[in-house]
Design a protein around this nucleic acid. Structure first.
Lengths: 123, 123
DNA sequence: TTATTAACGCAACAGTGTTGCAAATTAAAT
DNA sequence: ATTTAATTTGCAACACTGTTGCGTTAATAA
């Protein structure tokens, strides 16, 4: 009946989360446990389909957040914030720094992650 | 006679490289092969001492580049560029985007990595 | 119903990075 | 010069992230 049960559930998790989720966090939050590989593949698909985007955290671990207004072409100029206290990564979609590069650079993607203390932890 | 042979050699490698080097690349370039752990520890020390800084590449792998003007406190507001063709990561030290964050965010570090095609590969 | 496609699980693997302990090397003190 | 202390190194073992291949199950289309 239900198609791609895990994949849909993973999409729901990411959509309903206000912070970006790592593979590990997704695995923990899934009620019906599934194979690690299944999650990786679902995440790849969801990225392909333009539903989520990847953020590489300061420790090198990938986290995933919902896209707003991406189709096939991702455009994530926005800033991400990684809290060193609670380890959360959030999208600051309204913040899109602009800068000009020297001649010859062709930018395809950008990964901007600031780290420090988030408002919740610094309050 | 020579103190911390490996550590100094690693520092030399990074200082003389125009691109940021990964652990793997450093290991290959070392004439006298040494243990993986030794390299990791040397890199940690060199970061502590303010000689190098870490850039997390888009694939989550750490790369290391020389610092210019850092002591203990690293300040790397500058942009990094990761080429998807030749896999090189370079520091664009002159490019320092500024933007203001909402109230409550305390920024300690920033990791800005643009990916695309570098001037050499796009020429 | 059958054929095709997508999703899943399992096993195995490669790579990154960390920790503990012991040996060796370097620097300092007697 | 000999002993002591502090660094540096090597080795083994481990945890974690991510990938690939293969066979199986489930869903969609013919």
């Amino acid at each position: 009946m239900i198609k791609s049960l895990n994949k849909n559930q993973i999409k729901e998790l990411i959509d309903n989360s206000d912070i970006a989720l790592s593979h590990q966090e997704i695995s923990k939050r899934l009620e019906r446990q599934c194979d690690r590989v299944t999650i990786y593949r679902a995440l790849d698909k969801l990225m392909e389909e333009g539903f989520i985007h990847r953020i590489v955290d300061v420790d090198g671990v990938s986290k995933f957040a919902a896209c707003h207004g991406c189709t096939k072409n991702h455009h994530h100029q926005h800033v991400h914030f990684s809290c060193s206290v609670c380890s959360s990564v959030t999208c600051l979609e309204e913040i899109e720094p602009d800068f000009s590069l020297p001649e010859g650079y062709q930018v395809q993607e950008m990964n901007i992650t600031l780290s420090g203390v988030c408002p919740v932890c610094s309050a």
